[in-house]
Design a protein around this nucleic acid. Structure first.
Lengths: 154, 154
DNA sequence: GATCGAGAGTTCAACTAGTGAACTTAGCTG
DNA sequence: CAGCTAAGTTCACTAGTTGAACTCTCGATC
């Protein structure tokens, strides 16, 4: 699409959007968290076009989100395993999940998919807090620092 | 692009990806959190093509993320204000910000943009926890329920 | 030995969203 | 009247997306 790139903007949101800011990448990563590792399993479980999947996986391997791990020699076969960087992305998916469940739940959705703790069986409700204080983050008190005046790529 | 739609998939991640799963929408919303309200201010502060901005704002108004509020009568002028639904999206942006700062920080980035609490002046470090227990969410213990076997649109 | 199927892609044409620049509309200002 | 501002719209061009078909390499089967 000749899309604008954000990967060197000095803002984590912009750089994250550059990498996962398309419709399929978050879902590919979601599948990875639920145990999908192989090309065909990604393709058939999501219905993503194979060419699109190839492009996504290549970029994610290049960025160190997935590691390409051989599991068969002849013919050579590879699995896509989440790296620590990839596993850390769970927080973003959880935030997306929570917002989607809270605010985009269609009225006629009969069976919402829920997150559970597999040991306790309890529902998991992801929430973003400040790591140091443990308190919710209030939009009104939030500021950017340093702000660079007139700079457009913030 | 004739893109696949996820807006009725029974998963919050998929529905969220359908709405904000493009490169510009997260940045438009980021600007809104930092006080931008008017068309030209979005356009010039981000460098987003005006046609793309129109499409994004229209969709976000339609979905109830922004409210179109008049601020002048002749000629009619409108501002885009975040609704409660839009404000709740801050959690997703914070998770993206945190991941981008932790894992996508280019080595040669001289001035990373930081989040601060404007009252205390302290750095804010967003972290996703389980709302009920207050504890971090462990990927290994996370499960989907109910899982619908063989269903591709989860 | 030929055929079949699995797995992991590649190739291709058609479609359509993203992009940048120019244009439009309406009122306001000097 | 000329110039300016704000909020879009229009248009040609470009490039990512899609679905279907094809490729390639094996191992297993008839």
């Amino acid at each position: 699409m000749k899309r604008t790139r954000f990967d060197d903007w000095p803002c984590g949101i912009a750089r994250t959007a550059d990498l996962v800011g398309d419709w399929w990448t978050p879902l590919v990563l979601r599948q990875a968290f639920f145990g999908v590792r192989r090309f065909d399993d990604f393709a058939t479980s999501l219905g993503i076009p194979r060419a699109s999947l190839t492009a996504r996986l290549d970029r994610l391997v290049e960025e160190g989100v997935f590691e390409r791990v051989p599991y068969a020699e002849s013919p050579a076969r590879y699995e896509y395993h989440l790296t620590p960087k990839g596993e850390a992305f769970l927080d973003v998916l959880l935030a997306m999940w929570r917002w989607g469940e809270d605010w985009l739940n269609p009225a006629d959705n009969p069976i919402p998919v829920q997150l559970v703790d597999s040991e306790s069986g309890e529902m998991v409700r992801p929430k973003v807090v400040d790591e140091t204080t443990g308190r919710p983050i209030e939009p009104a008190r939030l500021g950017l620092a340093p702000v660079i005046p007139g700079r457009r790529d913030q």
